[in-house]
Write a protein that binds this DNA or RNA. Sequence first.
DNA 1: ACTACAATCCTATAAAAAGGGGAAAAACCA
DNA 2: TGGTTTTTCCCCTTTTTATAGGATTGTAGT
Lengths: 207, 207
Amino acid sequence: MEKINIMIVDDHPMVLEGMTSLLSKITYLHIAGIATNAFEAIDVIKNRAVEVAIVDINLPDINGIELTKKIKTEYPAIKVLAMSTFKERSYISQMIQNGASGYLVKSASKEEIEEAILSAYEGKLYLSMDINTVDVNTQLNTQLPAISTREKEVLGLIADGLTNQQIAAQLFISSHTVESHRKNLLIKFEANNTATLIKMAVKYNIV
Amino acid sequence: MEKINIMIVDDHPMVLEGMTSLLSKITYLHIAGIATNAFEAIDVIKNRAVEVAIVDINLPDINGIELTKKIKTEYPAIKVLAMSTFKERSYISQMIQNGASGYLVKSASKEEIEEAILSAYEGKLYLSMDINTVDVNTQLNTQLPAISTREKEVLGLIADGLTNQQIAAQLFISSHTVESHRKNLLIKFEANNTATLIKMAVKYNIV
DNA sequence: ACTACAATCCTATAAAAAGGGGAAAAACCA
DNA sequence: TGGTTTTTCCCCTTTTTATAGGATTGTAGT
């Protein structure tokens, strides 16, 4: 049996250590490489035959979501397993949307990790037990308002401190349009101004 | 040289695995036991000669802070090292107050972990590099700018969505004064507008 | 085909915040 | 006491947001 080539991306040495230690016990796996940030991860992919990437959502530079997007865009054959602690469930749908093959909580057992890797390798979608019983699409969108992708995009740029005109320039749209999005964001978040909007967005982990 | 008896308490198998793997490489350490929750931890303490306990702040049943308190009350000789991810810095002072001998971020290197254990064992207080330079009592102000209490007050009200005039009315000061505070906040946070200011404030746990 | 929604663009007024100055009490620390 | 920081107050101009309307295109779902 061919060994499955795994890459682990996490900025916590402990998690890296634990993962490699756990995975090295599984005979049919091969640790192709480890990375502590997105840059290193891309480097590993370029130089080794990575088949499954286990990516932590919290990375220092680019976050796991962006990295996943990048991997799936440039190397669609690589299966990505999102990994995070329990609290960051709000990111799951984003990861899945960006092409992740599964989601692992860091408290997952060896068996769960194994199952997740195998599922991913076979092209299936795997979700950790905790959230398996829950509908991914509905669950997350109940608390936070239903904002469109474009609105989320604008929201992110607002949080980055850009003005409407700068946002408009960046997205190649009219500043009037940005104002409209902004208006709708304020309504949807029931915020009266930018301050409240951003506070809520940060707390909802959107920005 | 006598070996130092270590116990690790964490509900993440990966972290446990990583920790044991890392620590087993250090000759003068002995893993006396591991636990995935507070109950198991107490059990280990009762049956083994634990000298240093590394306790994750996030535990499923009782949290790490309570466990620390319990350990230090019933077994004051045991040194407790608090462990958490970067984000939960707000708990540090609570842990220290409950008798923890130090604080470890999970992204700590092998050397840092080693240093923390040795410091704890010797009865010293160890804090991870990130917060080392800071006075524990004045709380967690490392990277974040030195803002005055009044500024913090104003910042909180800005985050609550109040306008300068509303803030002025609430604090019984002129709106000009509020504008000044606001101006200074923007300078101190190196933010160009409210959006950036609030984003940073939330991330720094000020609001 | 109809509906709903997303995304786009527009006008226009009013309000608020940003950016640039400066300055004087009050409180704090050495 | 002297020096420093904090808190307070004021001027002015420009930029940015908020608010309140409306309208059009395209797309996705029923």
